[in-house]
Nucleic acid binder design. Structure first.
Lengths: 334, 334
DNA sequence: CTGAAAGCGCTTACAG
DNA sequence: CTGAAAGCGCTTACAG
């Protein structure tokens, strides 16, 4: 690889001058500038960004931590971060932590050791304390889908509770009175918050949600099927099925359809997230839209700004509320 | 951040010694080693991987280029690369090129400038010449899903032609004689190769595929719907619908279902790729499995080995053939 | 406008 | 077993 030295020698100028023309730096004579430029072109010089990053100790890459890139929700998240970074010439390091404390920590520490100056973390299993510790090490650290006390201004999160309240409110307004809920069995706070939302809204309407009408399973397609299966096997009767996410919703719908239960005539179903395939399902899934693209962009912006020690644009929203997308999986109940 | 110098000073040894204990290097006295280690722990020293990479000029990260991380197929691909890299402590840079020549080149050049020593590229739009040129600049460059003449040993590809032949062969054996094909309208070679496979197999069986039985659209869910719609509107009759990929297949199935056409009773449908949601569709989609996880791992292994100038493990397979996954979207035609 | 020199945080011959 | 020194490819005061 040809280096700045080679160019300096070939152009018969100093390294400093070469560096200045590379960076369109200040005050280099137009003649010399053109000359150096020509030599660089001839020799096919490419600046070593790694070296530059090292010496300037500045901002060239942003780390992203997701539990699992295969998850379409996470892919969407990563996509929007990458898109924003690409537009400003930032490389993105993507790593996954698989919802495992050890792995997530290793991944973050590796990012830290690579001296990324910004990172956007989707981490649900690391403790608040550890996150606080990491945030001190990396001023550009931002959390998505999580609210850490003491780090509020570097968190971008969703009001999960409100999300499920809106779902239940809607189903209630459609005449439903018999509810069931299938929840994720992951030991993180989202399932708990969403369940709380469901319960509090139901309580407000004096509708009971017995424990037997709540089933837990992994938050995937199969989990959704398992969960409704156990609900049905347990004799629970319901006209409205609220689910933790779209994957479970579709799994549950498919299971019921396979059993000859008609959706939405027999059971109305509502998902959560509005991932790509919600609309591809049959019937098309009514769901809460998680504004992940806006949130991802907000998180990346905050990360970049705080990495640069800038004051953060106060208009960037940090708390989001999902919105109802009505499709075909819910019907009015008289 | 505490540096190696700080440690050297605090431990009252040379930088060289510190460096040796960091790297578990050769011959450092056990007492000194322990002492230095203790100081490092106390001061919370973390080696600067960027600096190390810079000086050793070695292998610390691998670049991945995909058209679009949102595409579940690409997400799967990226996932498997990342997993393999993670297991050996390699960071992955993920970038996307959106099937645009300019963007793809920029992305690759950026990767190059960052001095990644290996990269796995899913590129369909850059010319063979350019790829050859890049491959000289980066010995660890590997192509996936593409075969570049002169670069065969650093390509991992699928026999697309054979894939569609197998699809048609199967449908033929199930008694189908009236075929239609919906293809991607992207200007890359895969659609062409897959179509060739369809045609050649049909020709072998003396079945005609008139141009009116072929429709082109973008290779997504909506495209699938559009394509069948135009086929049906054009008056084409078929009992078997062969599709470019699962997304189009599901889009087409949903469109037909919405029209009251029963799948598979009226029309049998076969996809291609076997992405996650093929099994979640109703009816479950019969499709060709693209062995993307094996291929991704093979590509990453080759990239890593050739980046290290190792001789490449000859047992690593480079050409793959997809295999038929029978589910519910095909029925026998008497 | 231009250059000589120092320095970023590491590793690695080389010498002892 | 240990240290002094050079060097990786850049940038950036500093001096002129």
């Amino acid at each position: 690889m040809v280096t700045i030295k080679d160019i300096a020698k070939a152009a018969n100028v100093s390294q400093a001058t070469v560096s200045r023309v590379i960076n369109n730096g200040p005050k280099v004579g137009p003649v010399k500038r053109a000359h150096v430029q020509r030599i660089m072109d001839e020799l096919g010089y490419r600046p070593n960004l790694a070296a530059r990053a090292f010496v300037t100790n500045k901002f060239t890459s942003l780390g992203v931590l997701v539990p699992e890139i295969l998850d379409p929700f996470m892919a969407t998240f990563a996509h929007h971060i990458e898109k924003l970074c690409q537009s400003i010439g930032l490389q993105t390091f993507i790593t996954s932590g698989h919802n495992d404390v050890i792995k997530e920590k290793l991944a973050i520490e590796n990012l830290l050791d690579h001296r990324v100056s910004a990172m956007v973390l989707h981490s649900k299993v690391i403790s608040d304390e550890d996150l606080l510790k990491y945030s001190e090490l990396c001023p550009g650290l931002v959390l998505i889908n999580r609210l850490v006390p003491g780090l509020e201004d570097r968190c971008v999160w969703l009001d999960n509770r409100m999300g499920s309240e809106l779902v239940v409110e809607y189903l209630f307004s459609m005449g439903h009175r018999k509810f069931a809920y299938i929840n994720s069995d992951f030991d993180i706070d989202d399932p708990q918050l969403r369940l709380e939302g469901v319960k509090s809204c139901l309580t407000r309407h004096n509708v009971k949600l017995p424990d037997s009408a709540i089933a837990y399973a992994p938050p995937f397609h199969e989990g959704g099927a398992q969960a409704v299966e156990s609900l049905i096997a347990g004799g629970t009767k319901f006209t409205a099925l609220v689910t933790y996410n779209d994957a479970m919703a579709v799994g549950a719908m498919n299971f019921m359809l396979d059993q000859g239960i008609h959706i939405p005539r027999d059971v109305s179903v509502v998902g959560f997230d509005d991932v790509v395939y919600a609309r591809d399902a049959r019937p098309q899934l009514t769901t809460m839209r998680y504004p992940i693209s806006m949130m991802a962009q907000a998180a990346a912006s905050i990360a970049i700004q705080s990495a640069q020690q800038q004051t953060i644009d106060p208009t960037i929203q940090r708390k989001y509320t999902p919105s109802l997308i009505r499709r075909q999986s819910v019907i009015e109940r008289m």
